[in-house]
Design a protein around this nucleic acid. Structure first.
Lengths: 221, 221
DNA sequence: GCCTGTGAAGCTATTCACAGCT
DNA sequence: AGCTGTGAATAGCTTCACAGGC
């Protein structure tokens, strides 16, 4: 596949796996691994070797039949594809338990996605620094998002406030949302939404645990 | 599709949507909605009407061409399918920021899945009640899981400890895991794992936000 | 007329299988 | 001998489209 033939955007599943491959490489490269075979990466990521080769084909990365893939070159290309050069700013709305846990997550890992602001309407939180991140009033959302040129919004508000929050974020210019609220969000077609539906995750696990098996599972090996 | 022809276990995607349908009904039924059409449920869940009908077919639920579906009967059947009658007990390992946020989530919603214990190896947490849930030492994990007959385990430990934690839980008899750690877990074939990969979610949103569109999205309408 | 139930079609994602390289 | 790159096959999931019912 030639560089120019590559799709402008990858399938979402593929992006998720590329993210995982990069994490694995970040662990292995400092350990001295210079070359890696598709079956090794596949084992670490719990996917098939063919899947790894397909995913790498998607980003135009080539290996060598004798030596496999160059680990650090792959890491570099994954970073280029996933991060796209410029840093991106994110904001979080809803500094409850889950919101603060996510702020703490970003505090620990300052990566390419920078958490620049949190918003809440509890006056006890506004103006304070929560997990390394300044908390503003919801009223300041539009101006702060614009000033920070934030592109990603994380929605951790209670059910019932999520749509209003999403509308605000979208109106402020946000282009991607991670939605932790248990309701689907209506957004314009040019905004991407990633739903993290914890209620559904817990119910799914409870359901499958009852059948004592993963016979249904896709990645069974 | 006849009752006897139904699959023993549903596809995971379907289970997730059934969970969402139930949440929607729980909101609508008390509001006085008695009958609902597939297109109404579809609008609320952000899926197609055909998808709703297929999903209901999977659980053998029938409607009426004139009146649509009986909302409370659907709610009842969804509960029967998703919860399966008997209550299930869950435990959480790793009472850090994210772990405590999840405990708080369960504290708010005491449903069919009951959170019976948390585990951590910080002596400052062991013996205390965190978000309504008693925190035990990891050393007590096997005995507490057995005594409570817990079937679901939630893994919110730091990277590097997740596999060891999963091994412990599986050894103690857990049949389903929700894994929040950023690494895939190796478990026996009869244990179901639901990965909630927040790092991948954030990276995916950052990626797609850069392309200012959800042209790639499946549920575009 | 507008709905449900569903076979068939269409799509997407994954895996197979093998030619070609080293 | 064992790997990569990839067309072809397969599997799984979603939507179409329409017969049948109210």
């Amino acid at each position: 596949m030639e560089l120019q033939d590559r799709p402008v955007t990858m399938p979402g599943r593929t992006v998720g796996r590329l993210s995982l491959y990069r994490r694995i490489l970040r662990d292995l490269v400092p350990r001295g691994i210079r070359q890696i075979y598709s079956h090794q990466l596949a084992t670490a990521a719990h996917v098939t070797p063919a899947q790894v080769r397909r995913d790498l084909m998607m980003i135009g990365f080539s290996g060598n039949p004798a030596r496999g893939y160059d680990a650090s070159a792959m890491n570099d290309l994954l970073t280029q594809v996933l991060d796209g050069g410029q840093e991106q700013a994110a904001v979080l709305v809803g500094a409850g338990n889950l919101g603060r846990a996510i702020l703490a997550y970003f505090l620990g890992r300052p990566g390419h996605l920078r958490m620049v602001a949190a918003f809440d309407n509890d006056p006890g939180k506004v103006g304070r620094i929560l997990q390394g991140c300044r908390c503003y009033s919801i009223e300041d959302l539009v101006s702060v998002v614009a000033a920070e040129r934030a592109t990603v919004g994380i929605v951790t508000v209670p059910a019932g406030e999520a749509q209003r929050t999403a509308d605000l974020l979208v109106g402020a210019g946000i282009l991607g949302l991670v939605n932790f609220a248990p309701e689907p969000l209506r957004v314009p077609r040019n905004v991407y939404v990633e739903d993290v539906d914890l209620a559904a995750s817990f119910e799914r696990v409870a359901y499958f645990a009852r059948f004592e098996g993963r016979s249904h599972e896709l990645h069974v090996r």
